[in-house]
Design a protein around this nucleic acid. Structure first.
Length: 276
DNA sequence: ATTGGGACCTGCTCGC
DNA sequence: TGCGAGCAGGTCCCAA
C-alpha cells in the first residue's frame, strides 16, 4: 500500500503528534510484527521518549531517547493511527504504543505483513538504509542519475522504477502514473529510453509524487491506507491509469489496458504510451 | 543473470 | 444464495 507519498504523509503527521512523548507501554497480539522479537523490542522501548521521526523510502524511522531507532514498514495494508486511549479499537490493530497521558499510537494491519524493527544505533540503521537507491524529490535524485540507472538496466522500465535498490520509495501506483504522464510503455527496456524520454520520466515522477503528497496519499479501498488521524487520502481521485482498466484515457479516450509485469497489475494507455 | 512463482495473511468482488 | 478463483499499494526466497 503505502508508497513514498503515503509514508511521507504519515511521517508528517507523526512529527506533529508523537515527538517528545514518552512510551509507557507496548501491547500487541501479533508477535511476528515485532522484530527481532517482542521481548527484546519492549525491553528497549518502554520508558524512552521519542526524539525525532523521519522517513527513508517506504520506511518510517522513529528515533528514541536511548539511541535506539524503530524502523516501521507498513507493507500493503499497514496503518499508524494516533488516538485517544478512550476511542474504540480500530480495525486490525495489532501493536499499540501507549504514551504517558491520554494518547496512543495504533499499528493496524489487516494482512499482518508490516513490522516494527528495533535497530540498535545509527550504524546499524546505516546498513539498512544503504540498500536503497536515491530518494526522489531530494538532491540525490537528478535527471542524470535517473538516466544512468535506466541505461544500466535491461529490465522493463516499470520494474526499474519499483526496484527499491535503484530508486527509493516508488511503488506500483506511482510507477504506473509516472509512465503514463511520460508517455512511455511500461514494458520498454530501461536501456532503450531516449534522452527525451528520460527527461519526461524524471518530470513525471516528480509530478506524481508531489501530487500524491499534496493530496495526502491514495486510498483505493476501505481497508487500505489511512493517515495518522484515520482519514483516507485523495490522490485516487486523480489517477490517470491505475485501476482504470477498460475506462477511457483522460488524454485521448482510448481504453486503458491492463497487463501483468513482474506479477503485478500494470495499467497504461496503448495509444499515449509507446515503446519508442 | 533474469524472471516467474509462491509465501507471508486477510477479505472483498466477480463469475458461474 | 453459495463457492471458488482472482485480486490487492510490498518484499523475500527459491527454482528454472
Amino acid at each position: 500500500m503505502p508508497e513514498l507519498p503515503e509514508v511521507e504523509t504519515i511521517k508528517r503527521g507523526l512529527q506533529e503528534k508523537i515527538v517528545g512523548r514518552k512510551i509507557e507501554d507496548v501491547v500487541y497480539d501479533a508477535p511476528k510484527m515485532l522484530l527481532p522479537n517482542p521481548k527484546t523490542l519492549l525491553a528497549s522501548v518502554v520508558g524512552t521518549k521519542i526524539i525525532k521521526v523521519d522517513r527513508k523510502a517506504k520506511l518510517i524511522l522513529i528515533y528514541l531517547s536511548n539511541g535506539n531507532i524503530l524502523v516501521i514498514h507498513l507493507k500493503l495494508t499497514g496503518r499508524l493511527i494516533f488516538r485517544s486511549k478512550k476511542v474504540l479499537a480500530d480495525e486490525w490493530q495489532h501493536v499499540i504504543f501507549k504514551f504517558e497521558g491520554d494518547e496512543e499510537l495504533r499499528f493496524c494491519d489487516l494482512r499482518k505483513f508490516g513490522f516494527v524493527r528495533l535497530v540498535i544505533d545509527k550504524r546499524e540503521l546505516g546498513v539498512i538504509l544503504s540498500e536503497f537507491g536515491p530518494e526522489p524529490l531530494t538532491s540525490e535524485f537528478t535527471e542524470e542519475k535517473l538516466g544512468e540507472i535506466l541505461r544500466r538496466s535491461s529490465k522493463p522500465v516499470k520494474l526499474v522504477l519499483i526496484d527499491q535498490a535503484k530508486i527509493a520509495g516508488v511503488g506500483n501506483i506511482y510507477a504506473n502514473e509516472a509512465l503514463f504522464w511520460a508517455g512511455i510503455q511500461p514494458e520498454e527496456k530501461g536501456s532503450r529510453l531516449s534522452g527525451n524520454q528520460v527527461n519526461r520520466l524524471y518530470e513525471a515522477l516528480n509530478k506524481v509524487l508531489k501530487e500524491g503528497i499534496r493530496y495526502k496519499g491514495a486510498t483505493e479501498s476501505d481497508r487500505a491506507y489511512r493517515d495518522v488521524e484515520g482519514n483516507p487520502g485523495k490522490f485516487q481521485e486523480h489517477f490517470a491509469v491505475y485501476g482504470r482498466e477498460g475506462e477511457k484515457c483522460v488524454r485521448c479516450g482510448t481504453e486503458i489496458k491492463r497487463i501483468k509485469l513482474g506479477g503485478r497489475g500494470t495499467f497504461f494507455c496503448p495509444r499515449c504510451q509507446t515503446t519508442s
